[in-house]
Amino acid sequence: MGRGTRTAVLTAGALLLGAVVLPGSSSADPRQDAVAAGQVRIGLAPKAAACDNNSLSTGLTPSASDAGADVQRIIKRGKLIAGIDTNSYLWGFRNPTDGSLQGFDIDLVHALAKSILGNADAVEFLAVPTANRISALQSGQVDVVVRTMTITCDRLKQVSFSVPYFNAGQQVLVPKSSKITGFNDTMKGARVCAATGSTADDMLKDPAKDHGATVFHVANQLDCLVQMELGNVDATITDNALGAGQAAQDPTVHLVGGPLDVEVYGVAMKLGADDLVRRVDYVLQDFLAHQWSAEYDRWLKPLGSTPPAPVPRFAG
């Protein structure tokens, strides 16, 4: 892609490019039905109704206005500052040939910059570790985080989110030689890797549900792949979309068992930045309708045949 963008790297990780051998998936997307049924609450403004399983998934009504303070700050600066991952193959990674940043999330950031600033390359990328995503927004270090970030009720208390742009779920990734078959008792005594501050990390904190596994923490989810390759851990729990990317890099690992939950990725922003949330939702409304399928085919085809794009729902 080779875009002329400025990148500041806050953390480093190995990028291991290997043969693309990935598990397939169905083109159907039942997770969207679960989202619509209220199992996940999405894109709420700080003053919206409480986050609960009975609420419909809604985002802020899109707006193309540039008048808000948060959007104006970006326009006056002349660039969008985006927190990203540089080590997630397919999503956000550095091309080892030319050093350019590429992936599904990277293209989404360029779409945001194009709409807000009229220039897709008016971006400063900051590589933000998983555990620092929220603090980077709260401190004003970045305007947006576009980093396969799952929308959760707890996170909605700390940051604002766009409507979802991808549906996923946690799953277990293991070496093909492993006897672990999923998130079950075959994990007893195993060393399981999870990124600090990730959904998997939260899941493994419950001793009643960890199946006797020991948690091994890393800064970024790709570090788990390195730890598995070194033999320091026996399994990884991560988003299946990210796990599929790791399997693309190393064909000796694969996903086992089924998805452990229903998750959706959103663009995260500072809590209360409603004008920016509406502007991002405006971009996503068009991105989901006209660009999403092409982006999936370009980057995420190894995950399986192209599913329908998430259907945005707006209110308020």
Rank of each mutant, 00 (worst) to 15 (best):
G4L: 14
T5R: 14
T7P: 06
A8F: 08
L10E: 13
L10D: 13
A12M: 12
L17V: 15
G18V: 12
A19W: 03
V20E: 09
V21I: 08
P23V: 05
P23F: 02
S27K: 00
D29Y: 14
P30G: 01
P30M: 01
Q32A: 13
V35H: 01
I42A: 00
G43A: 11
L44H: 11
A45Q: 01
A45R: 01
P46R: 05
K47N: 07
A48W: 03
A48F: 01
A49I: 12
C51W: 12
C51Q: 00
D52I: 04
S55L: 11
S55C: 09
T58Q: 03
T58G: 01
A64E: 01
A64N: 03
S65G: 08
D66L: 15
A67S: 12
G68V: 15
I74M: 03
G83L: 06
T86G: 10
T86P: 02
T86A: 09
G92Q: 11
G92W: 03
N95H: 11
T97F: 11
T97S: 10
G103M: 15
D105A: 02
I106W: 00
V109G: 00
S115Y: 10
L117E: 00
L117Y: 00
N119T: 04
A120T: 03
D121S: 02
A122Y: 12
A122C: 13
A122Q: 12
A122E: 14
F125S: 08
F125E: 05
P129A: 06
P129Y: 10
T130A: 12
I134R: 03
V146N: 08
T150I: 14
V159M: 10
S160P: 04
F161E: 11
V163D: 02
P164I: 04
P164A: 10
P164W: 12
N167Y: 13
A168E: 13
G169H: 11
V172T: 09
V172Q: 07
L173N: 06
V174D: 13
K176P: 11
F183E: 01
N184H: 02
M187A: 08
K188Q: 15
C193M: 00
C193K: 08
A194F: 00
A195S: 11
S198G: 04
T199P: 07
A200F: 03
D202P: 11
K205W: 06
P207E: 10
A208R: 13
K209C: 05
D210K: 01
A213I: 03
A213K: 01
V215S: 00
V215P: 02
H217L: 15
H217C: 09
V218H: 04
A219F: 06
L222A: 02
L222Q: 04
D223S: 14
C224F: 04
L225C: 08
G243Q: 03
Q246K: 02
Q246W: 06
P251Y: 11
T252K: 10
H254M: 10
V256W: 03
G258H: 15
M269R: 15
D274T: 13
L276N: 05
L276F: 09
R278P: 14
D286R: 13
L288E: 04
W292T: 00
W299G: 06
T306D: 10
G316F: 13
